[in-house]
């Protein structure tokens, strides 16, 4: 009975979200729509990192690398041949990429699959490392991807990047992928396999003593996480319509990491909440970088100021509320109904 109620409430929530997006599309300006789109993409990215780090305990800092792979692969598949010819000034794009074309959905999927393949490839050597070493190795991987993108002009157009990427990533695509990611990862972490991942995170030795093939499970989790990071990168490329290697600096990974830590390692609802809050705040805080005039005082804009504020906020979270907004808890319909019922009873008293 509870299960069918949960299902109905989920459908209702998705319908409500759909209605809100439809309303937003008709009534909000382009800037606000852009933020809504970024919210969806950031949630996808943070969910995938939470799977890797929060649920499997793999401290990975390679997200920007997977995003870059997803972004380049997908963009090359949706850029029209004529546009490709025009922007590849240093070196022409190699055949068959120069003529290859795919519908947007297939392109995003291909971006995700390519990222997952790279995840698989590096996971075998890298996942044998534990803890901080894994962080350093994955960070190195992301950096290598960026350097390669900078130099492989025949495929990536080097430092010039790709321009004029068709803007297919509208609100429906982004939220569609976002919901799919949430659904997929929620199903995964609540399955038997999800319990195996949490067991590995909690105690690797004990997990091995249970007969769990720890390395294989880590590889699977890491590759699925890489897939969704690739999808997020692909959507972001189409949303922004231009990409270049400089976009995929460590800062990008840091933003995602911030959402995951703030929301709570091992909490999907926490990630969603933090995804909304932090994306909106990151935009809103742009004002601190603008020049301000108070009376006769003129303060010039300080670029990077909002990142300082955010880094400090992250420090505070780690110092005072290490488990993030939600800890490992989840918001569930049964929980919400329970709270409402108790409140109702209190009001009647």
């Amino acid at each position: 009975m509870y299960e069918s109620r949960t299902k109905r409430l989920n459908v209702a929530a998705v319908a409500l979200l759909g209605f809100f997006l439809w309303w937003a599309q008709g009534n909000l300006d382009g800037y606000k729509i852009q933020i809504l789109n970024l919210v969806a993409i950031n949630i996808i990215l943070a969910l995938s990192l939470n799977l890797i780090y929060g649920f499997t305990g793999l401290f990975s800092l390679g997200h920007a690398g997977f995003m870059a792979i997803g972004a380049y692969v997908s963009s090359l598949l949706i850029l029209p041949a004529a546009q490709k010819e025009m922007i590849f000034l240093l070196e022409p794009l190699v055949w068959p990429l120069s003529v290859l074309q795919a519908p947007f959905f297939v392109a995003v999927l291909a971006g995700g699959v390519a990222a997952a393949l790279f995840g698989l490839l590096i996971s075998l050597p890298v996942l044998r490392l534990g803890g901080d070493y894994l962080g350093i190795a994955t960070l190195g991987f992301a950096e290598i991807v960026r350097v390669v993108a900078n130099n492989l002009s025949g495929i990536t157009n080097g430092a010039l990047g790709l321009k004029g990427i068709p803007n297919h990533a509208n609100i429906w695509w982004n939220y569609g992928w976002c919901l799919f990611t949430l659904y997929f990862i929620a199903r995964l972490v609540n399955s038997n396999f999800g319990n195996v991942l949490k067991a590995i995170r909690d105690d690797e030795t004990a997990a091995r003593a249970m007969g769990i093939d720890v390395l294989r499970c880590k590889v699977v989790s890491f590759s699925i996480g890489a897939f969704f990071a690739g999808v997020g990168g692909a959507l972001m490329a189409s949303l922004l319509t231009t990409i270049d290697p400089k976009m995929f600096l460590f800062l990008l990974t840091f933003n995602v990491l911030m959402i995951v830590v703030a929301g709570g390692l091992g909490s999907l609802s926490g990630t969603v909440i933090a995804g909304v809050v932090i994306t909106v705040l990151l935009e809103w805080l742009r004002f601190v970088e603008n020049p301000v005039t108070i009376g006769s005082f003129h303060i010039p804009g300080i670029p990077g100021m909002r990142m300082v504020i955010f880094s400090m906020a992250l420090l505070f979270i780690i110092l005072f509320r290490r488990e993030g907004i939600m800890g490992m808890r989840e918001i569930t319909w049964n929980g919400i109904i329970g709270v409402c019922r108790r409140k109702g009873e209190k009001d009647r008293d």
């Binding site: 195996v196 067991a199 995170r201 909690d202 105690d203 030795t205 003593a209 769990i212």
Partner: peptide, 22 residues
């Protein structure tokens, strides 16, 4: 293992089911 290495964030039921993993 030494020091009762149970899985602290999983329920008793889930802990037991992991014991039957093989």
């Amino acid at each position: 293992p030494e020091g009762r290495k149970i899985f602290p964030h999983l329920t008793v039921y889930e802990n037991l089911m992991l014991g039957a993993y093989v």
